[in-house]
């Protein structure tokens, strides 16, 4: 009897939880649904549909056509893509190499150097903005992509993660290769690098997200509208138009957000794991 009521309450609480989660999850999704709906409304550019409706009175591709014909969004995608790919390549390479040295290497100043690497985690972007702006200004690199991906060399958290990962790989792999006379670089690239898949994937995801969404630094460095990244383009569009042109703004938001959401849905397991890893205490 007692077991039966226990089962019943378990079942009941399960149902209640699922209902609450469904309602709250739906509420979180409402802004997205509304964004898409407004994007399909031509009249929303003059007068936002009120009361709100799921399917616009006059569904049309008008706003999307304008967004695509204007083409600025594709340029922004290309710019964001170039910057992100370069940042990821540079960041992941530097982290893997650094993490490997701190894990397997024996050299003078190792401990101090590792402290310096962890110390970089304490330094935010803001106090570095002006000197870095001046530095790249002197080098004539403003309005190029160099200032945006070169700083990816420093990835203290990436090095830390890689060191932990390499610590778990056995030293015996190295030792047998050393006996065969392989060089350190050879050992790294031939033996350890092929084993770095999981940690490299995590680093790619974390670097991709931070680079793709980066805002302040690109805002400072890039003034040329042709070089704008997606966040810069969206920001300048919003600042120009405010809350007029609702339909066009929402179509633009849709085009900038949906591809990332689709990518996320495909990779959700890995992305969520990577985010969780960044906050999991051992």
């Amino acid at each position: 009897m007692a077991v039966l009521t226990q089962k019943k309450t378990f079942y009941l609480s399960n149902v209640i939880k699922v209902i609450v989660l469904l309602i709250c999850g739906f509420l979180l999704m409402v802004p997205f649904i509304w964004m898409i709906s407004i994007g399909f409304s031509k009249t929303a550019n003059v007068q936002m549909p009120f009361p709100p409706r799921l399917i616009p009175k006059d569904p049309s591709w008008f706003n999307f056509k304008l967004v695509f014909e204007n083409g600025q969004i594709f340029k922004a995608y290309l710019n964001s893509g170039i910057i992100t790919v370069c940042s990821v390549l540079i960041g992941v390479t530097s982290s893997l190499l650094g993490g490997y040295a701190f894990s397997k290497g024996t050299f003078k100043g190792k401990k101090l150097m590792f402290i310096i690497v962890l110390g970089t985690l304490m330094i935010p972007m803001e106090p570095r903005l002006i000197p870095m702006y001046e530095m790249f200004n002197k080098l004539g690199m403003l309005n190029t992509f160099w200032p945006l991906f070169l700083p990816a060399l420093v990835n203290g958290f990436g090095i830390f993660l890689c060191k932990q990962y390499f610590d778990r790989l056995p030293d015996s792999l190295r030792e047998s290769a050393q006996i065969d006379g392989a060089s350190e670089l050879g050992i790294f690239f031939k033996i350890y690098f092929p084993l770095t898949g999981p940690i490299a994937a995590t680093l790619v995801i974390l670097t991709f997200i931070s680079s793709w969404n980066d805002f302040v630094w690109p805002l400072v460095v890039l003034n040329d509208p042709n070089l704008q990244t997606i966040p810069l383009y969206l920001a300048s569009f919003t600042q120009e138009n405010g809350t007029s042109l609702g339909g066009l703004t929402m179509a633009l938001a849709t085009v900038s957000v949906i591809p990332i959401i689709i990518l996320y849905l495909f990779l959700q397991r890995f992305i969520i794991q990577s985010i969780a890893l960044s906050g999991l205490k051992e």
Binding site: G25, L28, P31, W34, P231, T238, T243, M250, V257, I260
Partner: peptide, 22 residues
């Protein structure tokens, strides 16, 4: 549920701000 609740976080905050002005 995990995927749904994490979705807003995947959106760039700039795009989110754009949507929220409306």
């Amino acid at each position: 549920f995990k995927v749904i609740f994490f979705l807003p976080n995947v959106t760039a905050i700039v795009a989110a701000a754009m949507i929220f002005t409306f």
